[in-house]
């Protein structure tokens, strides 16, 4: 991994550790309302200022980070699992199975992502799980396509032929010989996709379709304080900066993983 990738990983870890340990910090009170101290500019007491209910913005950002990162990472893991099943079957069996599975994947890919995610977020009661479902419903298809491509290029390899000749079962070939070879690709694609998932989560919670109050999320912090853009810009600037920084770091990490494994995946 190159230097940029390492730096990005370090920042991601820093954000993650601070977010996930926030509940153990005595100064971290995302929910404590103090109506005497509303819309305060950043100060020593409140490094990022306070919001319209006098709540500490730094605490809320850290708690929001927990939500964002958990959703993006679990959505990526779930998409990978579904994508692996579809991609491996499609690539290995070929023929009608391939045609059918990939037609389905193409069908999903031809939906405008956010529109479908919005539709799904409205179908289920809004919340963390709904956001994950909405992201995975679209996300698995691109994993499936890329993994299929990888399998197609692998399955003609000599060692697969050898495994077949030695009488390996289909399940064993897929599980022990093809799947491990897909891991680098999966890692790279995950790195590249998580950044986008962070943005989708933020967009949905900005539209009010994400995790519900009182749970703070970066997107909802921005939409709640849009109206105070001129009088208290820090309430909007700080959470947006965190979304951008986190997404950027994941994108940089994905790029550097891609270069590290010498893969040609566009995105």
């Amino acid at each position: 991994m190159n230097r940029t990738g390492k730096a990005a990983l370090l920042i991601i870890l820093l954000i993650a550790v601070m977010s996930f340990t926030a509940s153990f910090m005595p100064w971290c009170n995302p929910g404590s309302i103090n109506l005497d101290r509303i819309k305060e500019a950043p100060s020593f007491d409140h490094p990022l200022g306070t919001d319209t209910k006098g709540r500490d913005i730094l605490s809320r950002i850290l708690y929001g980070g927990r939500v964002s990162i958990s959703i993006a990472v679990s959505a990526a893991l779930l998409s990978t699992m579904i994508g692996l099943v579809f991609g491996l079957c499609s690539g290995y069996f070929g023929g009608k199975v391939d045609a059918l599975l990939m037609a389905f994947a193409d069908l999903v890919l031809s939906f405008p992502t956010l529109l479908l995610a919005i539709a799904i977020s409205v179908l289920f009661p809004p919340g963390i799980y709904t956001v994950v479902i909405a992201i995975v419903a679209v996300g698995w298809a691109s994993f499936a396509r890329i993994i299929r491509g990888q399998v197609l290029s692998l399955k003609e390899a000599n060692y697969i032929e050898a495994a077949k000749a030695m009488g390996c079962s289909t399940g064993r070939i897929i599980h022990r010989h093809l799947m491990p070879q897909c891991i680098p690709v999966v890692l790279v694609v995950m790195g590249m996709k998580i950044g986008g998932y962070i943005l989708v989560e933020a967009s949905l919670s900005f539209l009010g379709l994400g995790a519900q109050p009182p749970m703070p999320t970066w997107g909802s912090m921005i939409s709640a304080h849009r109206a105070y853009l001129t009088s208290a810009p820090w309430m909007v600037v700080a959470p947006g900066f965190m979304i951008a920084l986190t997404a950027l770091c994941f994108n940089l990490l994905g790029d550097s993983l891609r270069d590290r494994y010498g893969l040609k995946i566009k995105g």
């Binding site: 950044g195 943005l199 933020a202 967009s203 900005f206 997107g219 921005i222 939409s223 849009r226 853009l229 909007v236 600037v237 947006g240 979304i243 951008a244 997404a247 950027l248 994108n251 940089l252 790029d255």
Partner: peptide, 16 residues
Amino acid sequence: ITGLSVPVFWSGLLLM
């Protein structure tokens, strides 16, 4: 890569 990572609803508000 920054352009890809910044959410439009935030960059829009900053531009505004």
